[in-house]
């Protein structure tokens, strides 16, 4: 017997083409498959990334879904595997399994206003949706990006945020929890930006990603502004060891976050969203 057929637990080696430091603890890797070919994914999906001998972690894809040539992941070093990943250099290899999970329903939002609300590194899983929305800009009404970071030095993708803000067809608002001296922008939580943003709540789709507490208040504010819960989507994070529904770790109520999520329409999870320790 040779290799087991179509083993979803076996990683494929990808070569690191580029490493970019984003923040003190956050970095972006650009990867290409060693075997060649393209990597296709949908905005909001994630991969299981394997550092040889160290371990494997679920990381959302943060590149452009329209560009299959390079696989892009922005990762915050928070544990042993992500720290080891941060030490990898150009030319070294990383194992990839995926893409997994349900995407942001970008196409389903065509014809509506689109509000994107992100907190901290929660902007990384939303960036593919922003790329896709901008590439199809004429298909949407208003495009609003609301972003909150803890401090000015923790703003992810600042140059891109500036670039998007510079477009006449996109509203970008950024806020920080704690301002530094040179900061002249908004101070406060990201939910405060909602009432200033311009969108038609009856025809708006919203994507929300950030810490769970931020998403809780974010959804509350968006529904309060009149957006229907079925048009609000959140991306959940849970412990994952497999990404394909075998390991059990990511269960949340009846859901496996890996395959039933990570992106959920809020109305489907509203009854469990606020249950503690579920």
């Amino acid at each position: 017997m040779g290799a087991l057929p179509m083993d979803p637990m076996q990683p494929r080696p990808f070569r690191i083409e580029k490493v970019r430091k984003e923040l003190a603890d956050t970095f972006t890797l650009e990867l290409v498959p060693e075997e060649g070919g393209e990597f296709r994914f949908a905005a909001g999906q994630f991969n299981m990334l394997y550092v040889m001998g160290v371990g494997e972690v679920p990381i959302s894809i943060s590149g452009d879904p329209g560009d299959g040539a390079r696989l892009i992941h922005t990762t915050r070093a928070v544990g042993a595997v992500t720290a080891a990943m941060g030490n990898l250099k150009v030319g070294e290899a990383l194992g990839v399994r995926g893409p997994y999970g349900n995407p942001w329903p970008v196409e389903a939002a065509y014809g509506s206003d689109l509000v994107i609300m992100a907190g901290g590194v929660g902007l990384a899983p939303l960036r593919p949706a922003i790329y896709q929305a901008l590439a199809n800009r004429e298909r949407f009404g208003k495009l609003v990006i609301l972003y909150g970071a803890r401090s000015p030095s923790e703003i992810l993708y600042p140059k891109e945020l500036e670039k998007w803000r510079g477009r006449f067809d996109t509203e970008v608002q950024v806020t920080v929890d704690r301002a530094a001296e040179h900061w002249s922008g908004n101070v406060g939580v990201v939910t405060k930006l909602v009432k200033r943003a311009s969108f038609d709540p009856l025809h708006t789709v919203a994507f929300v990603c950030g810490p769970e507490i931020m998403m809780r208040y974010g959804v509350q504010t968006l529904t309060g502004a009149g957006i229907d819960p079925s048009n609000i989507f959140v991306s959940m994070e849970r412990n994952m060891k497999c990404g394909v529904g075998f390991c059990g770790h990511c269960q949340w109520g009846t859901n496996f976050v890996c395959k039933d999520g990570p992106v959920f329409p809020f109305d489907q999870i509203a009854d469990i969203f606020s249950i503690r320790e579920l």
């Binding site: 040779g2 083993d7 080696p13």
Partner: peptide
């Protein structure tokens, strides 16, 4: 689940003969 060996700068996943 699998075994891997270092190959140059990267690694390769070994065929499972079990």
């Amino acid at each position: 689940l699998f075994a891997a060996e270092r190959a140059g700068n990267g690694f390769r996943v070994l065929k499972d003969e079990g």
